[in-house]
Amino acid sequence: MTEPSTRAETVELGVELLAHLEPEELTLSDAIDRIETVTTSPALTRDILDTAEKRGIIDRDGARLRVRRGGTRVNYETQVVTREGSFECRRCGSGLTTGHFVRLDAGELGPFGSSCIRKVTGRDDSTDE
């Protein structure tokens, strides 16, 4: 993955990731877990959440967050690509020989392992509450 080079690019990538999250409602903690695949900076995380809320992408209610995506979800056939190589999962840090990358308009996010890509996008039932 090419790291976002500016603060604004990082915020855009984080906002777009939020716009594609499943399920539509999740805890703030679960949303932050996913944002941490973009940045671990608390200030940038706050900027991502604030920007997404101002744009009407999310609604925050205390420790809960609702995604107002209007039908957008990560399409695994067109937006997730795999590459062979030597990678480290961006979510859990495990070594990978196959990396899964999410292509968003704001940039590419990854690499992730096969289970972490599902957790990041919210397709893994174990992350739902």
Rank of each mutant, 00 (worst) to 15 (best):
E9P: 00
T10K: 08
V11G: 01
V11T: 05
E12G: 04
E12P: 02
G14N: 11
G14Q: 09
G14P: 07
G14F: 08
V15M: 01
V15C: 00
V15R: 00
E16L: 07
L17S: 03
L17K: 00
L17M: 05
L18A: 12
A19C: 02
H20T: 10
H20G: 06
E22I: 04
E22L: 14
E22Q: 14
P23R: 03
P23E: 06
E24C: 00
E25Q: 12
E25S: 12
E25F: 02
E25A: 12
L26E: 03
T27I: 03
L28S: 07
L28F: 07
S29I: 09
A31F: 05
A31M: 08
A31T: 11
I32C: 11
I32A: 11
R34G: 03
I35K: 02
I35W: 05
I35P: 01
E36Q: 15
E36Y: 04
E36W: 03
T37N: 15
T37Q: 06
T37A: 13
T37W: 08
T37G: 07
V38N: 01
T39N: 00
T40F: 11
T40H: 15
S41D: 15
S41P: 06
P42G: 09
L44S: 09
L44F: 07
L44Y: 10
L44H: 10
L44G: 00
L44P: 00
T45K: 13
T45E: 15
T45S: 13
R46G: 13
R46C: 02
D47G: 04
D47M: 12
I48W: 05
I48E: 04
I48Q: 02
I48C: 05
L49V: 13
L49A: 04
D50Y: 04
D50G: 01
T51Q: 08
T51D: 10
A52G: 04
E53Q: 12
E53Y: 01
E53N: 09
K54Y: 07
K54S: 13
R55M: 11
I57V: 15
I57Q: 00
I58M: 01
I58E: 01
D59E: 15
D59S: 12
R60L: 07
R60P: 02
D61T: 12
G62K: 06
G62D: 11
A63Q: 11
L65C: 03
L65I: 13
L65P: 02
R66C: 04
V67A: 05
V67S: 01
R68I: 08
R68A: 08
R69W: 10
R69Y: 09
R69T: 12
R69G: 15
R69F: 08
G70E: 11
G70N: 11
G70H: 10
G71H: 02
G71Y: 03
G71D: 03
G71S: 02
T72R: 15
R73I: 13
R73G: 06
R73Y: 14
R73A: 13
R73F: 13
V74W: 09
V74L: 11
N75Q: 12
N75S: 15
T78S: 14
T78L: 05
T78D: 11
Q79F: 09
V80I: 14
V80A: 03
V81W: 05
T82D: 06
T82M: 08
R83H: 10
E84T: 14
G85K: 07
G85Q: 10
G85A: 10
G85W: 09
